[in-house]
């Protein structure tokens, strides 16, 4: 079996594929897990979509900004569900008390992270693609009409979601199931700061500084600029990408340090209990 090696980092595709296969077996074994992937994004879309319909009937501004809420809902779900897809796959190992088996196998941390990223994409595709068609059917909003900008939005949001997912997984390894709630709640800290449904300018000056330190803020600003002003803000996407590269690298370093610390304090022996 082949492996890619760049000195310190070795990546064996067959081990990444083995882990992806493990999660696909799990998804296949439970239709409720599959349904759950679509259920919340669909509910969220319908609530916000109908709300936008209602407001648009009573406000010229929102009539002009048609689709901005729906796009925001879809983008937010990419960010949130991307992280959740990553973290839930990791949590599955803790829930099933299988982590020790993996940690004593030849699977390397970087391969584990790669498998979790792939699963995050697969889970996102299963959950979000049907919902985007729902947006077309119910509200006439075609997110694919955003064209290449959509790809830039998606890449930036998924990178942020992975960075958060990696850190959460590291904290779970180090602190055990006591930190499980982080997986479900941490992303919501970003929601008001990343200005999902309103422009950054509505925040107080000092909070705007914090908002601009977060890559998703650039994506949501860029999305509003595209939908409302028909302007593609490449500068925002590049800035978001630079920040994401920084946060993603920091997330990987944090994960490896937390894993090292878990080996030191012996928490790999207690996970799942």
């Amino acid at each position: 079996m082949s492996a890619f090696s760049t000195g310190a980092v070795t990546l064996a595709p067959h081990r990444v594929a083995a882990m992806v296969l493990r999660y696909l077996y799990l998804l296949r074994s439970s239709w409720t897990r599959l349904l759950e992937l679509i259920y919340w994004p669909a509910v969220q879309l319908l609530v916000w979509g109908f709300l936008q319909f209602y407001i648009a009937q009573n406000s010229g501004f929102f009539a002009r900004a048609s689709g901005v809420f729906i796009a925001a809902v879809l983008m937010w779900d990419v960010l949130f569900r991307g992280q959740l897809g990553f973290s839930i796959s990791f949590l599955e190992e803790m829930w099933s008390r299988n982590l020790t088996n993996l940690m004593i196998s030849p699977l390397r941390p970087i391969e584990f992270v790669c498998a979790l990223m792939i699963m995050s994409l697969i889970r996102l595709a299963i959950g979000m693609v049907p919902v985007t068609f729902l947006a077309i059917a119910f509200f006439g909003f075609n997110v694919y009409g955003l064209g290449l900008a959509l790809a830039a939005f998606f890449v930036n949001l998924i990178l942020t979601s992975w960075a958060v997912g990696i850190v959460v997984s590291g904290v779970l390894l180090r602190n055990g199931m006591g930190a499980e709630s982080l997986a479900w709640t941490l992303m919501f800290v970003l929601m008001p700061l990343a200005c999902v449904y309103y422009p950054v300018s509505v925040l107080p000056d000092w909070l705007q500084v914090v908002a601009w330190a977060l890559p998703p803020t650039y994506v949501f600003e860029g999305m509003r600029a595209l939908i409302m002003e028909h302007v593609v803000r490449v500068d925002l996407m590049v800035e978001a990408f630079v920040l994401n590269a920084l946060y993603f690298s920091a997330g990987v370093v944090a994960f490896l340090q937390l894993l090292k610390s878990a080996r030191r304090v012996g928490s790999l022996l207690q996970t799942g209990e």
Binding site: L21, Y25, S96, R97, N98, I104
Partner: peptide, 30 residues
Amino acid sequence: HKMNFESPYVDMPHRLTVRQNLKVFGRLYA
């Protein structure tokens, strides 16, 4: 890859069949 471990205090994924579990670990160990 030349070692292994067994303990009743460590489980394998419950929802996977025996064959699926052995396939996953077999692939991890190449």
